[in-house]
Amino acid sequence: MSLVVLRRVSFAYDGTPVLVDIDFTIEEGDFLAIIGPNGSGKTTLVKLVLGLLRPTSGQVEIFGRPPSALTDRRKVGYVPQKATHIDPLFPASVEEVVGMTLLSGSRPGGRTGREARARVHHALGEVGMADFAKGPVGRLSGGQQQRVFIARALVTSPRILFLDEPTTGVDAETQDSFYEMLHRLNRSEGLTIVLVTHDIGIVNKHVNRVACLNQRLVYHGDHEGFCRSEAFREMIAHGNHLIAHEH
């Protein structure tokens, strides 16, 4: 089942084209990496799907509707690009941050405080951060903060999770355990994951689909096909690294 469909989507900032004629689907169960050089339109593509931007032309659908008409936003989890660049002095506890998505949902009176707290603690448990619930989020390390933001995205039990450059500024060891966690969520929970990155090397062990952007969609398909593609050779020529696929 296609969770996301883009039909001939183009987008321009002040007349400068960022994305041109994108035709593209995201299927249920995909662990998709959207890759491409800086400025290739990766973040713009995700923002179009989420309804944060409107396409200049073409159609975007998520769960069969235009993003602006999607009433149940709880189906969609989002970890934005600068999630770990939060104000360290912001006085929010970890459980307050995770509860934001749950408590501020558009369905009024949907959850009692006790149920909300239970879901928050379950989501924190999923990412191994249950022991930090009461502490201020600003004092956590970058990797720990990233887990908290994943928990915030997971707390509504979404069917699709978008992560935009989630490991920027996170050390290599933490990145590995972070991707292991995403892999588990995709495999055992069936969560569809869309990961934006400019470094395919690190995600290569886990993704099963690749979309390569450079204003246009230059490749969309499975990993093996990508390794044989012209797009892959172009990326290697421009200094992007790829490690052996371990599926």
């Binding site: 944060l52 936003r73 989002y78 939060i86 934001m100 501020s104 949902g105």
Partner: peptide, 19 residues
């Protein structure tokens, strides 16, 4: 309260959550 807190903390994610 919850919507104001979410928007104050992370405006973009709040928009993505439909606020």
């Amino acid at each position: 309260y919850d919507k104001l807190l979410f928007m104050t903390f992370d405006r973009e994610s709040a928009r993505a959550a439909g606020i």
